[in-house]
Design a protein around this nucleic acid. Structure first.
Length: 601
DNA sequence: CCCATGCCTG
DNA sequence: CAGGCATGGG
């Protein structure tokens, strides 16, 4: 892979696009003689150290080309998302797409942009910092957009005069902008502009759009620019500040991350809880009771849940022909500028959840209706917007229907907390949106992990078909299945390690009769297991499980006592025994709302 | 050859 | 908990 590729990703799209349009260039004079067209443009757009004289000479042509580029972009109406058709371009954008398909390896190594890494490093575990980061990014975006508007306005003016003039004043302006430390975020502004503009022209000015196609009259830019500038300013600044506000409000108000408790907790006194626990003894009915009674979620549990999410996001990205996942074979070209748009690795429902979480008026969807009714910032977005939301692209350059993925760390830091903090809200909001009442998840959530752990009390060796039955809200595919299987494998691993450890401990303590080995609820072993599988202690560990644990402990004790542990596979017989002791799982686990209930209690 | 499982590692 | 690898059954 070309290391420069990622580093320059966000920029490269800008200049390669321009370069392309110049090559197609209707006006040969606009080409930079003696230079590869893309290189000087690179310098213009990216570098501050452009030679001023050269720059002065080329400036007019540059501007012309730029404006033409924009016109072309607007004219390419049917598929506004793909102004790129240059094979070279495509090539450069799919450098490592063909990720080797290791059969064993069902998971794509997560691909992170350097920016993403830095971002997550900076903000990991620091809500305050994250919030500031948000704010910075969004303000940056705001700035870029304003910047772009100004600039484009200038350019379109210049275009009229540029044929004969070298206006040093404007050159200064231009240089000033080029030296703007933010100028390298340009791609974003440009693309957003084009995206918006296309929508705008399609919805409101279709005739103009066609005129552009035919005549490409430069001054139309000016005309549209004025109108668009207004709309853009309103729409984008409004949206950006709104998002900044809502994000910050949520992010900063919950520095500790235990949102659920604050939002949804219905406290039950310890006394009540004890009563319920003491009457419940472990079958379905009682499980219901205990689960309803489960309270007092600890923070550590929350953290543990969080740790489960990334995998559901970052994995399954190449998913072997699964169309729903094929889009994830993309590279994270330019990640960091528009955080909310970088969601391709997040299941759509969760994206929606996030959007809802960020406020009903999330304006990250630039659906035509919204563009055209830019005044209406208070009314909720139309219900058909979620999908167009996902198509919004920070760069507008990609021909893909989905935007740039989050890195897993970003997901971990951004998406999950959002989901979690909005859980209560989501449930009500979801009723208002078309497809979400069932909430088929494409990925596994912390709730699912928690549920799986509790299920482990009943089944140590669940079959994949059983898992499908008990995770009805999960969209199963190979990755999800093996991930779940892996979870249980990990659970078993921990379980058996503990068993062996305590069995050996018992032996070392001089115990000779295996029948005295039990796992009472006040034992250390129980506490260890409970901590692992039932961290919040909001589920009563079934006696059944304790029986099996005792038996496992005894088996280990016997085996070790008999010296079988010299055999490399001495545990196998034990595994075999235990594998036959799976019991039925309470019905409540079949409920798709189970994870939510578990999470929220 | 595919898949599931187990083991080891980070 | 996930990744990677080795193994063993179909």
């Amino acid at each position: 892979m070309d290391p420069n590729f990622i580093l320059l990703s966000s920029k490269s799209q800008t200049y390669s696009y321009i370069g392309e349009s110049m090559e197609e260039g209707s006006s040969p004079s606009s080409r930079v003689s003696g230079h590869d067209s893309s290189i000087p443009w690179d310098q213009i757009t990216i570098s501050n150290s452009v030679d001023s004289d050269w720059f002065c000479d080329e400036q007019i042509q540059a501007k012309r080309a730029r404006v033409e580029t924009i016109i072309q972009g607007m004219s390419l109406s049917p598929n506004p998302m793909m102004p790129l058709s240059n094979p070279r371009e495509k090539e450069s954008r799919h450098p490592i797409e063909n990720s080797r398909e290791n059969k064993r390896k069902q998971k794509l190594p997560q691909q992170q942009s350097p920016q993403g890494e830095g971002w997550s490093r900076d903000s990991r575990g620091n809500w305050k910092g994250e919030g500031h980061h948000f704010k910075e990014q969004l303000q940056m975006l705001q700035q870029q957009l304003r910047h772009f508007q100004e600039r484009l306005y200038q350019l379109s003016e210049h275009n009229v005069l540029a044929q004969t003039q070298k206006d040093t004043e404007r050159k200064k302006n231009f240089l000033k902008h080029s030296n703007d430390p933010n100028h390298d975020h340009w791609a974003l502004g440009t693309d957003q502009y084009k995206h918006l503009k296309r929508n705008y022209t399609k919805e409101e000015k279709p005739k103009v759009s066609e005129e552009e196609n035919q005549s490409r009259t430069p001054w139309l830019i000016t005309y549209e620019e004025k109108t668009l500038s207004e709309i853009l300013k309103k729409e984008l600044t409004g949206a950006v500040s709104q998002v900044v506000d809502s994000v910050l409000r949520k992010v900063l108000s919950k520095p500790s991350g235990n949102q659920i408790q604050q939002e949804t907790d219905v406290q039950v006194s310890g006394q009540d809880r004890k009563n319920i626990y003491s009457t419940a003894t472990g079958n379905t009915r009682k499980d219901l009771l205990t689960m309803e009674a489960s309270q007092n979620r600890s923070q550590s549990q929350t953290e543990a849940q969080m740790s489960a999410l990334p995998l559901s996001m970052k994995k399954c990205s190449d998913s072997l022909g699964d169309p729903a996942n094929s889009r994830m074979t993309q590279k994270p070209y330019q990640v960091p500028h528009v955080t909310l748009a970088m969601t391709s690795q997040i299941p759509e429902k969760q994206i929606l959840s996030q959007l809802l979480g960020y406020g009903q008026n999330s304006h990250w969807s630039y659906s035509p209706s919204q563009i055209s009714s830019s005044q209406d910032t208070s009314s909720p977005p139309s219900l058909d917007m979620p999908w167009s939301t996902f198509k919004f692209q920070p760069s507008g350059m990609s021909q893909r229907p989905y935007p740039v993925p989050f890195t897993s760390s970003q997901v971990e830091n951004l998406a999950l907390p959002t989901l979690k903090m909005e859980h209560g809200k989501l449930k009500t909001d979801s009723d208002a949106i078309p497809f979400s009442s069932v909430h088929i998840q494409e990925g596994l959530t912390p709730g699912h992990l928690k549920k799986a752990k509790l299920m482990f009390f009943f089944t140590r060796y669940p079959s994949s078909s059983l898992l499908k039955v008990y995770f009805p809200d999960v969209q199963f595919n190979r990755c999800i299945t093996s991930q779940l299987i892996k979870w249980f494998s990990n659970f078993r691993e921990f379980y058996y390690i503990q068993m062996e450890k305590f069995a050996r401990q018992a032996i070392s303590e001089g115990i000779t009769n295996p029948n005295v080995l039990k796992v009472p609820r006040n034992s250390e072993l129980f506490r260890t297991l409970n901590m692992h599988y039932n961290k919040g202690n909001d589920f009563e560990v079934p006696d059944q499980f304790l029986e099996i644990a005792s038996l496992t402990l005894q088996e280990f004790f016997n085996a070790v006592t008999a010296g079988k542990d010299s055999d490399p596979s001495w545990k196998k017989p034990i595994y075999k025994i235990i594998s036959k002791l799976d019991s039925d799982i309470p019905e409540i686990f079949k409920s798709s709302s189970c994870p939510q209930e578990l999470l929220r209690n």
